[in-house]
Structure formats: structure tokens, C-alpha cells
Design a protein around this nucleic acid. Structure first.
Lengths: 152, 152
DNA sequence: CTCAACTGGTAACAGATGAAACTAGCTACG
DNA sequence: CGTAGCTAGTTTCATCTGTTACCAGTTGAG
């Protein structure tokens, strides 16, 4: 070491670790979904949320999935094209549609969901319940505090 | 609830939470670096690693930062253009260069590093040391187990 | 009414990122 | 040596994601 100043080991920098870990996990999941169901992450997220609450607008879906409205729009179009979701006109607002799963979409969801849980279990295997709960809690607070800093 | 089947609340799905939190944090950091120093994340990562170990090849930098060699190449070119790093020929291998910080790069690093730590502190404010250590440990194991699943 | 400001959704555009193709240099084995 | 196969780095191309611009429809003030 030739410098006598502030040093920052990248490996000790938490935002970096977080980013790496998250990218690895996302990539593993994306690969699996793509291979198993031909779904990309935004599409799968939409399916999951619509399955819990049929008849939502894209607006609501964007809020629920934290995705941009553009991303939601594209995913929705792709899912309609594949016959996995259907759009009903919204009687309260001509501009928007209410999205719900078609029978095919419902079927897909029912095979995707267990697979998702299994994948999650495999990735998070070897962690204790308390450990995971703590991890989740940190993520939640982190999400809030980072959002507060970034006025985007 | 009208279905009697497996349900998966997206909000309970850890990979999703992880991805959201990570994106928020990365975005906050990217915004800050861009505004303060005109650096993008890959560039800043390179600076940080080169500062710890001058005279590395891009190959080595890629391994250290977990970034693609293309990303490293682009970041290196951008940093050279700005006069923040210099490339020396590698006497052992004509194909590769050894990268090190210029005085300007060193200066920049010395003002970036404290700022980075401060940002990290702010984002992770309100967490206990033990909590953070546990969080870090989970990230580490996660990184490994996700990488193992994704043969990419 | 009707006009201005606003919102849901899409399209067009731009930036970031990774995979594949390519170039130049290295290494090994005949 | 010389040629086949490999590696460091760059370029090219496709893909993903978000910002901006835009259109149709809605709401509220007058």
C-alpha cells in the first residue's frame, strides 16, 4: 500500500455486493423462465399479479409490480398476443382496459407458480427462516431509503 | 379468493424484492455519481479497483468487478479519454495493457471514495452492525448459489 | 357546453448491456 | 519454423429498459 488516504475496497462496498447478487439471481430466474415457459420477467410479473387480482388496469399493475408503464404496456401486449391474458374495456374509463387471465393464462400460472417457489427455495436453500426474515426486512427498508434519496 | 390453488404473492417472492431493492439502490448511486463526477457505474468500479491495485490488465479487472470484458473495455476507453487512467503496454503480452490511475484519476478517486462511503452510510442508515454483517453474508452465499444454478 | 389541464396507454427514440464475430498476438506441437 | 488453436481486447449487432413525445379520452372551471 503506497497511499495513506481513504481506501475503499470494492468488495466491501455493500451497494456493489447487492447489485452483483441481485443480477446473478435475476439472471438465473430469467434463464429458467425463458427456458421453461418462454416468459420474460416483466411478463411473468404481470401474470403473477393478475392471478391474484383479476381485472386490474395497467396503471394498477405498474404500481403493483414497480414497473414502468411502458414496460407494463409491452408485457401486456406480448401476453395478449400469446393468448394468456385478455383485455376487457373498462366501463369507467374508455382509455383503459381491464386485464385478466384467459384459461390458458390461468393454466400457465398454475404451472409457473410452483416452479417459481421451487426455484426460490433452491436459490435460498441453506438459510434459516429467521435469517431470511431479517434479510427481507433489510430489503424492505432499503427499498424505501434508496427511493427517498433518488428523486427519480 | 376464488381459487383453491397454489398462490404466489409477488410481494412475498424474495427474488422480486431483491431485484426491486437493488435497482433502487443502483439507480440512486448511478444518479449521484453521474451528477457529482460524471462517472457511470462501470467506470467508477474500474477506478475503485485500479486504485487498490495499479497496473492490472482488463482481464483482471473484469474478474475483479464481475463485469463483462466488453463493459470493461468501454469503461476503460472512456476513462482514458478523460485522462483519468493511463495504459502502459504489458511487457509480458503485447495484446494487453496495464492500467493505472493518472494523477487526475488519483485525485478523482480520493474525492469519490469518501463520497461513496457517505452515500452507502446514508442508504444503510438505521441498520445495526450485526444486521448489516448478516445481510452481507446472505448476499455472499446468494451470489454463489445463484451462479451455480445459472450456467451462463 | 367548451376549453384547458390532466391521465391511460402506445410509439418513437436513446442509452446501457451482453453475445457473437473479428483482429492481433501468443503458445504448443509437429 | 510454421501452422493450429487459444486468449486479450475491440467492434458489431441484438435486446432490454426508460425518457420523451404523442393520441384519445376524462375532468373541472367558468
Amino acid at each position: 500500500m503506497t497511499d495513506g488516504n481513504t481506501t475503499l475496497k470494492l468488495d466491501d462496498f455493500l451497494p456493489y455486493r447487492l447489485s452483483i447478487a441481485s443480477n446473478r439471481v435475476s439472471s438465473a430466474i430469467a434463464t429458467a423462465y425463458q427456458a421453461l415457459f418462454g416468459l420474460r420477467i416483466p411478463e411473468w410479473r404481470l401474470v403473477a399479479v393478475i392471478a391474484e387480482g383479476q381485472g386490474m388496469t395497467q396503471q394498477a399493475l405498474g404500481a403493483a409490480t414497480r414497473m414502468d408503464k411502458v414496460t407494463v404496456s409491452r408485457a401486456a401486449i406480448a401476453l395478449v398476443e400469446r393468448g394468456l391474458i385478455a383485455r376487457r374495456p373498462n366501463p369507467d374509463d374508455q382509455r383503459s382496459h381491464l386485464l385478466s387471465l384467459t384459461p390458458a393464462g390461468q393454466d400457465l400460472y398454475e404451472s409457473v407458480a410452483p416452479k417459481a417457489l421451487e426455484l426460490e427455495a433452491r436459490i435460498f436453500a441453506g438459510f434459516g427462516a429467521k435469517e431470511l426474515a431479517a434479510f427481507r426486512a433489510v430489503l424492505d427498508r432499503l427499498e424505501a431509503s434508496a427511493a427517498a434519496l433518488d428523486p427519480e
